[in-house]
Every structure is written in C-alpha cells, then in structure tokens.
Amino acid sequence: MTDYNFAYLDEQTKRMIRRAILKGLAIPGYQVPFASREMPMPYGWGTGGVQVSAATLTPEDVFKVIDQGADDTTNAVSIRKFFQATAGVDTTEETEEATVIQTRHRIPEAPLNEDQILVYQVPIPEPLRFLEPRETETRKMHSLEEYGLMHVKLYEDIARHGAIATAYAYPVKVEGRYVMDPSPIPKFDNPKMTMPAIQLFGAGREQRIYALPPYTKVVSLDFEDYPFEASKADHSCELCGADDSYLDEVIVDDQGGRIFVCSDTAYCAARQAAQSDAAAAQYEEISA
C-alpha cells in the first residue's frame, strides 16, 4: 500500500477535514458539513471515523481501535490494519498506551488523559433525525435552539413506559447550547464524555464532523423528577470481577445459561493480569 499517501487520504482532502475539525472544536456539538470521500471500506463501517483518524494521525502516534469495546472484533481489526499499512503507526490494545483511539459504540473504561484523542464512528449524527427526517428542518431547529420535539419524545416515553426508553445514543446537551448525538454508545458511557481528552466525531455517509474540546460540559437530557441514570447489567464481570464496567451478556449453553463479561476487553485483560500477578506474588510470599 506504499503507493498511497501517508494515512491514505490526499493532502487537500486532509486539509478540508482538518479545517472542519477545527470549526467543530470551536463550536462544540455543532455538526460541521464536510465533503466526505468514498473510502476503500463501505459507508456505515466507520468511514467518518477513518477519515477523521486519517486527518489526525501523526507518524509518532500509537493507535488503538475498538468496536463494541473490543480490540479483536473484525471491523476493529480491519481498520487497525488499514492504518498500519497506510500510516505505519504503532498500534496497541492498551488504552493507557494509545494516543489516538478510534471507537465504535463504547468509551473505554480507563479514564482518558489530556494527551489522548478519542475518535468516534457515527452512523446518524443528527440527534433529531428520528423525530424529523428532513435535514432542512433539523438544521432550522438547531439554529433556533428549538429542542421541544426532543423533550416531548422523552416525556412521552415516561408517560407510556414510566422511564425514558432510550438505552444507547442517548442525546446530550453540550455547553447548554447544541443537542448532540453521542453516537450509539450505551448511556452508561454518557457521563464519561466530560473528559480531559479531545473527542472527535466523524459521520462519513452523512458528511458531518463534530467535536468536544476537553472538559466541555456534556449533560444527558432528562427531567427533574426523572433524572438520567447511567445503567448497566446488575452483575459483575465473570472474568475479572469488575462491578463498575459495562458488561456484555454471553449465552453459554442451550438452556439459556449466561455469564456477564466486560465489554472493554483491554480493561478486563489488564485486571485479570494484575490479579494473577498479585496471586503469584502472594504464592511466592507463602512459599518463601
């Protein structure tokens, strides 16, 4: 793949994306239109995130890709391979080691720091899209800060179900101005979005980039009497015992038996390693 430019995209395309990223950071939560390019992977498979990563990566970066929290899911593998080949960057599975993390559907459990960048793959960037399918209308709503429709939807949920029936892609308000789609992360992850790292969001098919500078105030929409709740399965991880991480439910037999394990594979592996180290140390102590 050496025939391609550094990080695949040509320089003019990267400049166009970089300008969009800067405007996105200057107007947190606002969706900046950009002339998304056709990438060598399909729309809907992370082309927005890939374009943002391509415009962001430097040769010195250490790159991590997760899908559903896991480094070894096929599409994460495919995207990681793409940048190994086109940008020659080092890759890692450890959250703490990575400088740029591209993600689909999760925020890592380990807190991110100021020197890290989190790039989200976004399928539908418009939080109002399922309430109003027209771009011409939703654009007007954002410009007028007219978010009544969203509150009505959440309120109707409560009236019908006794709770807000949105479990992922739970809408947030950014710095008290723009309502933003956090991408389809579980709402468990929403409170993490006020963080020291830069967050960049890329929606390739929908041609939008948006961003959150570090420490930007991100608030999940709710009502005083129905406050937002970052929920997860009421279990702990079968493998590492964590009770504070987001869990996947794994069906283990034909009788519907199931276990719960961390969705963040790097977090889980690090905890397991630490535990076996501690056990080994203890064993050594006892034997000594």
Binding site: Q68, N75, H105, R106, I185, P186, Y246, D248, S263
Partner: peptide, 8 residues
Amino acid sequence: PHYVDFQS
C-alpha cells in the same frame, strides 16, 4: 456487531 447497543 451491535451487541453493546443490544445489551443496553
């Protein structure tokens, strides 16, 4: 995979 969303 959408199992994280599905789980939620």
